[in-house]
């Protein structure tokens, strides 16, 4: 069903989804999706609203567990291990598969405590110096260090929207994840803040497997190497980003990227 381009270079799959169905009660939101999330690449999910991009993204770190009516079928593997198997440590999984949300959601704590939160609960830091080092490193990687280094005690919620979102990315980085999931991370930001985040994603790309849901075709084209086009709960087409945008094989993909619907 999913058209997968055959010119893809061989990559190591960090995550592998097979025949995944997601239901909210009786309503099916994801319909037998099977795709790979390659290591060290940025994968973009595009598609019209309501087609299930967020739902699928949340099933990659089992955030769907927090929705009472949600039910996931099929297998999703992280490094070959089924994350839905019984006895899976969800807390550990979420530390390995981090997430950045659509609306920046820093905790109402200081900038420092926002970053230190994850390392503290996972026991990453031996002492205060360790923690300081982690906080600094995460903020540096998220490109926020220079802006906030003198005001680490200020509330995270006092930052601008773009800074808040980078704080959330820094917070995710601080627990040393292997995969970072981003659900429309720029949709609440202005163009300048958006450009900064895109730059940041580029910087992070070689280090983590990144999945980004986006409404903006340009953004997908700018930051991602792989693109999956979602439609009505299915992945219609999956391939190199450049191919999907210049040379789509499916009629529905072509319609969507030329703006005929969505």
């Amino acid at each position: 069903m999913t058209v997968i381009h055959d010119n893809l270079e061989a990559t190591e799959a960090k995550m592998r989804a097979r025949d995944v169905n997601v239901y909210y009660g009786d309503k099916q939101a994801i319909d037998s999706v099977s795709i790979d999330i390659p290591q060290k690449y940025v994968t973009a999910f595009i598609g019209p609203s309501g087609c299930g991009k967020s739902t699928f993204l949340r099933s990659l770190n089992r955030m769907n567990d927090t929705i009472a009516s949600a039910r996931v079928e099929g297998t999703i593997e992280l490094d070959g291990e089924d994350i839905y198997k019984s006895g899976m440590d969800v807390v550990q999984l979420r530390a390995r598969v981090g997430m950045v949300f659509q609306k920046p959601n820093p905790f109402p704590k200081s900038i420092y405590d926002n970053i230190a939160y994850g390392p503290k609960i996972h026991g990453f830091a031996e002492d205060k110096d360790d923690l300081d080092a982690i906080v600094e490193r995460s903020l540096v990687r998220a490109g926020l260090w220079n802006e906030v280094k003198d005001r680490l005690a200020d509330s995270g919620t006092a930052l601008s929207g773009g800074q808040q979102q980078r704080l959330c990315i820094a917070r995710a980085i601080a627990v040393d994840p292997e995969v970072i999931l981003m659900d429309e991370p720029c949709s609440a930001l202005d163009p300048i803040a958006t450009a900064k985040i895109e730059e940041l994603i580029d910087d992070l790309a070689g280090r983590y497997a990144i999945v980004i849901v986006t409404h903006s075709m340009q953004q997908a084209a700018r930051v991602s190497q792989r693109t999956a086009f979602f439609h009505l709960g299915k992945v219609v087409e999956y391939g190199r980003t450049s191919d999907i945008f210049t040379n789509p094989l499916e009629e529905r993909t072509k319609d969507y990227i030329t703006g005929r619907y969505g």
Binding site: M63, F101, N105, F107, C168
Partner: peptide
């Protein structure tokens, strides 16, 4: 806001850690 709770859970915090912290 539930975004606070989700943010904490997505960091790998347990439910009771999320509540307490």
């Amino acid at each position: 806001p539930s975004a606070m709770r989700d943010g904490s859970l997505a960091m790998g915090a347990t439910k009771s850690e999320t509540i307490r912290k």
